[in-house]
Design a binder for these strands. Structure first.
Lengths: 341, 341
DNA sequence: CTGAAAGCGCTTACAG
DNA sequence: CTGAAAGCGCTTACAG
């Protein structure tokens, strides 16, 4: 480990390569950028070889300053400790890497002030575009980005306007409802998720709509909003069971929330699925490995991330990408069964 | 949402402010950087006001090119979808923000080639330093960083040499052992965690050492290594129970692994803690909200992240920070009880 | 096919 | 206290 500051060992630059080869820096630049037909094959060859030997790596900072493109995109998430968001990020990151971009991610904790601050930070870093995975309903996407003319894409959490890449959560909620209804459940509770996020709202609405169409009314007191965390899931489940103790099934708008709910059910001596069936959402890896493997709606989070980045890259290339809603899929496991006779 | 490319609306620059004020760009730079006593108070005042009005934001790319300091640090993690690493990152990010740095994070998936590639990427981005939270025992920290003279700090996962910031995992393992021994357990299994990472190895060794000192021998077949995930935890628990079906307690080197183990125990009709007591590690929020609240060793992950960044910043300022081992703490919950009589 | 020049936006010795 | 100049490392029209 070194204690010297950065740049102690002088790195190779275009200029140093040029000097060593007796060429002009501009020629070396062209040779390396692979402008085909604009520079002789032999020159390209010798430049490439020396660059390799000297361990030359283009200074992306300088390039960014010169071209006005940083090859950096920003990404806003509520928090990265939420595996759901970390998974979307993973998709974004994969697509970034393939396109020689890099993604600067920032937590906003569902806090409006912090969010503004983070956007400012990203803009100061000259990001070419931004992926917003933390949108709250009723707010605009991001004033500052609009003002700065920096393109952005909404991911996962959607808004009525703007370029959106997410899962069809209305359909996802519907799939969960159809599954429980087909098993014979009639008294069902819903832990609806974050009520300021499209994900929470639409999953619940899709579920409730499907129930209503089947002639099953879910009373209001059996629908409890809840932030997306294990702890909040446990709390919301308690509220739900107090208000509607006779439910035979619960739809939770996320796997973490479902995990919290399992704890509360157990505390009350209710077992899954014998007493209460449980459906989660997102189909995180843990769903399959939970104490009782969890039936869950797969929301294709990595693809959401990849898709959002692809749309942003298209935008940056002057394209006109359209919004995308991926189709979710129900994965049935042991946590759901017919209600007790 | 705009479809224009970046930079469409021309942003205020030092030059544009200077022109508007009839000052030289260097004066404006000094006024804004707050060089005290080097520029008149009235000038500072007028420059500040205009900068505010025009929404001036310093171009950090240009500054980086000029000063040779990017105010960007890199961070390597095995994967960010692991809540443990995401939590360490959160600490790093908080400390970064306070110091006007930004952290570029990259997944390396415990894969050596991908890691080299990621380091190259970070170096190309002119990072001032790097936090390595993905070290594997037996490998060096990072050749490329040494060669490039870029300072780095090891976080969470430690190596025998280099600047390390982590938890005292030997002690953590010991705390878990003392707890189970004091409850009266004598036949104990260990799911030892990733055997290429210091965290996995030291937690297990601390545990085994404490048992040995108490005169309790844990046979080799009751110690199963395991990657840090729910899925792997479930698998390892099965291996363990096949090899040592008579255990009355299990120490799992992470909470995720413990969660996986709960599933396996349940499958086999064993209940926690009546048949088998279970101790996890890290004390993630979910530990408290698991179906059976999990006894766990708190590894102070946010502090590890903060400490690692503080050490790196010290290094970048020419300081000589020393390694840091934080003291873990046992948090007792419902998953541990005396063995059945 | 290669060279020479300009310039991205900033900071920092050097003058005055 | 302010100005003028140089330069970080690159790219890209413009010549030749």
């Amino acid at each position: 480990m070194t204690l010297d500051g950065p740049g102690t060992r002088s790195r190779a630059t275009l200029t140093s390569l040029a000097a060593e080869l007796g060429l002009h820096v501009s020629t070396v630049s062209r040779a390396l950028s692979g402008d085909p037909g604009r520079v002789s094959a032999t020159t390209v060859e010798s430049v490439r070889r020396l660059a390799e030997q000297r361990g030359y790596r283009s200074n992306l900072t300088a390039r960014a300053l010169r071209t006005g493109r940083s090859s950096v995109v920003g990404m806003l998430v509520p928090r990265l400790t939420d595996e759901v968001l970390a998974t979307v990020y993973e998709g974004v990151d994969l697509a970034s890497m393939e396109a020689d971009y890099v993604t600067l991610v920032a937590n906003t904790l569902d806090d409006a002030d912090l969010r503004e601050q983070r956007v400012d930070l990203l803009l100061g870093r000259q990001v070419d575009g931004v992926i917003l995975a933390d949108s709250l309903l009723g707010s605009n996407a991001a004033d500052r980005l609009d003002k700065a003319g920096v393109p952005y894409v909404l991911a996962l959490r959607c808004l009525p306007t703007g370029l959106n890449v997410g899962t069809d959560d209305l359909l996802g909620g519907r799939l969960a409802a159809e599954h429980l209804l087909s098993l014979g459940h009639r008294r069902i509770g819903v832990i609806a998720g974050e009520d300021r996020a499209s994900t929470g709202v639409e999953r619940a609405r899709g579920f409730l709509d499907a129930c209503a169409e089947a002639g099953i009314a879910i009373p209001e007191h059996a629908v409890v909003p809840c932030r997306f965390s294990v702890t909040e899931g446990a709390r919301a489940a308690a509220v739900l069971l107090d208000a509607a103790p006779d439910v035979t099934a619960i739809f939770a708008a996320s796997d973490n929330v479902a995990l919290g709910a399992v704890g509360t059910l157990r505390e009350r001596g209710l077992s899954v699925p014998d007493d209460v069936s449980l459906v989660g959402y997102n189909n995180l890896p843990m769903a399959a490995s939970m104490p009782v493997p969890l039936t869950s709606v797969d929301s294709r989070l990595v693809e959401v991330g990849r898709g959002a980045m692809a749309a942003l890259l298209d935008l940056l290339d002057g394209g006109r990408p359209s919004s995308l809603r991926l189709a979710p899929e129900l994965v049935v496991r042991a946590s759901t069964a017919p209600p007790r006779a």
